[in-house]
Design a protein around this nucleic acid. Structure first.
Lengths: 339, 339
DNA sequence: CTGAAAGCGCTTACAG
DNA sequence: CTGAAAGCGCTTACAG
């Protein structure tokens, strides 16, 4: 078995209290004792048990993270940023990948609680009633990252989805498009679903572009649904000349569908995505997208979390709204009357 | 604070021992007591502290995972499979994303040790001497997944990289190609680097296709390096008619480079990738690839790990070699003499 | 500056 | 079938 503090104490000829003191960098330990202890630690290859420490300190330095889909380019990037920031601050991540599996989510939330994590970061917003009531009972910081649940007990780190969708749509109108389709997400989502949809509608309204219901479809943010819905849109008569998809994944799915139908982006149809994920640079043509500050989002989520953990009094009571940015690449072009 | 076992005992009017017994599903507890305890647990919303349990059980049900890059399509997929299998078996994951950062890796390995994780899964093979000696001292199961380090103290779950690369290259020769380029990985990698390279060479040799050193380049498995190296290859005179890239990411980078140079895949150059990641279906043309059984790899890694943890005696002493499979999509075509 | 003792929240022989 | 007590590996008043 791994050596324990007692072994170190014996070897160094001091009490465990003294060993504990040098372990925790306290002053008030004579230099010679400190040296002896350090040597004993070295020789034994001793590393204190985080488990035992957590028990007495009542702090685990663990943060539970709930991700909807690890393989998504958006979530894996934000998770990566979360991990980096946590690591920098000596926090560790317990990661749960829930694939639309409410039972698994509830089970993990229970595990997080049993593990006595110091805080929980959640990246999806379709909370079941059971889950909602469970997390309401927890008395640890819970922060939503990149999404916002309906109840306002918890803080979110997000962008202004309405504005972002508005700006994305407006960009297409400014290119002269008048038949602009919309690939939306789940309307039960307060954030990405509803706000982005309303942003799209209002932008068209304000720009005096006709809203055509047949051009509006809802999916699940994933590539496949983008592909399938695009197929439907291509059947519209006349077909749209531009498309705003509320995720890059959907946008890429749509691009692929268009390609498979022997049409061209952006010549036949302009496309703008949403998220600014790595995909935008991977596809051809490169995808113009409304970019979320993914890196910052992860970083700020963790920093806020740590602030909440270490100083509950000063923790923010309001959502943190980050800026969005249109990044123009090659998937949109001005609408040409003559074709 | 959260209620403890003592609170439950008091409320139910029994000893903590009895509460512990019903918690752990032991028999030999009278039904009426059991009922009382269960009710007390319910009313208090009690959940046992995993921390305290771990301390006495000397088992944390934690598995540390070291990933080279969370945002990579390959690793996020395998991690996702690892997570799923672990969760099914009531194990939790401590995830560390090392981005070529040896210091971070060592730090995390230390954390894993302090956390007393039950086992460690590592997904990269370029071990520094310091790290090597550290993990050699650990007396918990360590399994390498999808990679194989030089020393054979540890088990790997992998495919036969030599055979897979051989088969991929052979496929191109069978399509009639005679100028077949190679985009390799880091030659310090025992697995993906060296074996795949030798597989490529031997396939060409056996098929009596000339090996042209100028067509052979080494990168780092990532998209950007695929792009950059392809640029070099395009400058070759005559240029290759086919390419085998040892990762899908590199293959996609190469495809993009070809596209940006106004050439066509597969008409001008055929490309075969390696991994069978999600990217293969995302790009156009869809990428033919030598597929690793990514899902199985994750699953088998975890199952083997759990076997090692629970039954050290019966744990395998040899690498687990899984099968590879060529998946033909649209990025390769037969070589036409007349062009 | 140093150490003996209590305690963190559990489980597990041991005794009854 | 049930409970008192010891112990898991630490930290932290408390006393000296």
């Amino acid at each position: 078995m791994a050596p324990k503090i007692k072994d170190v104490a014996q070897k160094a000829g001091v009490s465990v209290t003294t060993v504990s003191r040098v372990l925790n960098g306290e002053k008030y330990v004579k230099d010679d004792l400190k040296a002896k202890v350090k040597q004993a630690i070295e020789e034994l290859g001793y590393a204190p048990s985080h488990i035992a420490r957590s028990l007495v300190r009542k702090k685990t330095n663990l943060i539970g993270v709930i991700v909807p889909d690890l393989t998504s380019s958006f979530y894996s990037t934000i998770l990566s940023s979360i991990e980096e920031t946590a690591s920098l601050n000596d926090y560790n991540l317990l990661v749960c990948n829930i694939i639309e599996d409410t039972d698994k989510e509830l089970k993990y939330l229970n595990v997080f609680h049993e593990m006595r994590v110091d805080g929980i970061i959640i990246m999806h917003e379709k909370l079941s009633d059971e889950i909602r009531s469970f997390i309401h009972k927890l008395d640890i910081p819970i922060i939503f990252s990149s999404v916002r649940p309906v109840d306002h007990k918890f803080i979110s780190v997000i962008i202004d989805d309405y504005e972002a969708a508005y700006d994305a749509t407006k960009y297409l109108t400014e290119l002269g498009h008048e038949r602009i389709a919309f690939l939306g997400g789940d309307m039960r989502d307060v954030t990405s679903g509803q706000n982005r949809y309303v942003g799209y509608r209002n932008a068209l309204k304000d720009q005096r572009v006709r809203i055509i219901n047949d051009y509006i479809r809802f999916g699940d943010y994933k590539t496949q649904s983008g592909y399938d819905l695009m197929k439907e849109l291509l059947a519209c008569e006349p077909r749209p000349t531009a498309l705003f998809a509320v995720s890059d994944d959907m946008a890429v799915g749509a691009m692929n569908c268009i390609h498979d139908h022997q049409l061209k982006v952006p010549d036949d149809i302009s496309i703008i995505g949403f998220d600014g994920s790595q995909l935008t640079e991977l596809v051809r043509p490169r995808l113009t997208s409304m970019e979320q500050p993914i890196q910052d989002m992860g970083k700020i989520t963790v920093n806020t979390m740590i602030e909440c953990i270490t100083n509950p009094a000063s923790s923010p009571r309001e959502d943190l709204i980050l800026g969005h940015k249109l990044v123009v690449r090659d998937s949109c072009k001005a609408y040409q009357q003559e074709r």
